[in-house]
Design a protein around this nucleic acid. Structure first.
Lengths: 200, 200
DNA sequence: GTGCATGGATGACAATTGTCACCAGGGGGC
DNA sequence: GCCCCCTGGTGACAATTGTCATCCATGCAC
């Protein structure tokens, strides 16, 4: 019997996934978490064989949960289940010790199958996405990412400067650098491109 | 027996929801659609009692499917199941003849319950969201919305002008108007605010 | 027909944004 | 030690963006 912990912030989807897995006779859903903090706590308490987790969750992302469990060298194997086919996410997931990266776009039958493979010590990663993930590295520095993120929220250069205690000119330099690295037309375009790659 | 058609673009979620409903003895999932066009076609062919549909789907949105079915005065009742608590979406859903508006954030037990209520001729709408939907109307004109949408994609004013066959100054006027109507700081802020309300 | 709202356009102006060159300190890596 | 990269900063300049007043059709209401 493979013991599974599910983490997903949309309650409806969480319940539906649980019902999907409960059909499988060799799987047992031992816990459900609605955010990253709960997921980490329950993973420690329950030590499931496999944690199936979303990436984007309030409080703590699935990537952070995975990294935390890895740091504690927990035996729990991790399946990332996400909406986003973003190379940067996959890369960070693997760095954080995940064993599988599954898209919510893929057929529901694949979830149970992936859990079994992972529990048996294997890995499940989409080959095309993997190729993309290694071909192109995130070119942004931390500062550039921060500045870009704030500008995507609608802050002006002056606002960003104030928020990060930088000078206005420096913020414009970072933004300009990010725009040029990404081959974008302006800050909005740059933010969109970075988001699509999972770098933001 | 209530005959249900499910429409949802994320295959994993679609399968999971089907498994969730298959547990209920008084419900029968008669079809699954992966996009809006399929949903409309299957709704016509199968004439289910209830269509449960996502809003944001490729090709044709759930709102458009609902509107099309309403135009054909189909008896099928509609449950919108979406991630977004956006007043504008709820309003458009009701205008399009939907009987329920459910969030993916709400507990999974509520789905079957909502389907039963709707099949019996009732409505299921979150009261706080409903209040919000009627308190604040979409202030944007069609042109303003179009221009804002393109600017959110990273196009410059000149690009937008070319795309819509308008003059550069006119585009800036619309943008300025939208920014002021929304009380935003700039085009990025305006787009974010409009998106959050479901007006974009 | 007069009045008036709407869509589209100008021109002018200020503010913001994007680019570039260049400077300086601090950590690594080799 | 030297080189390179990251951070942070200036100053200057051009391009884009945002604001306003104003204008002209069109079409609709009365």
């Amino acid at each position: 019997m493979i013991r599974v912990l599910l983490a997903e912030d949309q309650a409806m989807v969480l319940g539906a996934l649980a019902s999907l897995l409960s059909i499988e006779s060799d799987l047992e859903v031992v816990g459900r978490a609605g955010d990253g903090v709960d997921a980490l706590r329950m993973a420690r308490d329950l030590t499931p064989d496999v944690l199936v987790t979303d990436i984007e969750m309030p409080g703590m992302s699935g990537l952070e949960v995975a990294a935390a469990l890895k740091a504690e060298s927990q035996a729990t194997r991790i399946v990332m289940l996400t909406t986003f086919a973003r190379p940067g996410y996959l890369r960070r997931a693997l760095d954080a010790g995940a064993s599988a990266y599954l898209l919510k776009d893929s057929p529901s039958e694949q979830l149970a199958e992936a859990i079994r493979r992972v529990a048996a010590g294997g890995r499940v990663i989409d080959p095309t996405l993997a190729a993309e993930a290694w071909s192109e590295a995130d070119p942004l520095t931390d500062r550039e990412r921060q500045v870009l993120r704030l500008s995507a929220e609608g802050l002006s250069s002056a606002d960003i400067a104030a928020a990060l205690s930088l000078s206005d000119g420096t913020v414009r330099n970072y933004l300009s650098e990010a725009i040029s690295k990404l081959g974008a037309k302006n800050r909005v375009d740059a933010a969109n491109l970075a988001r699509a790659k999972g770098w933001l």
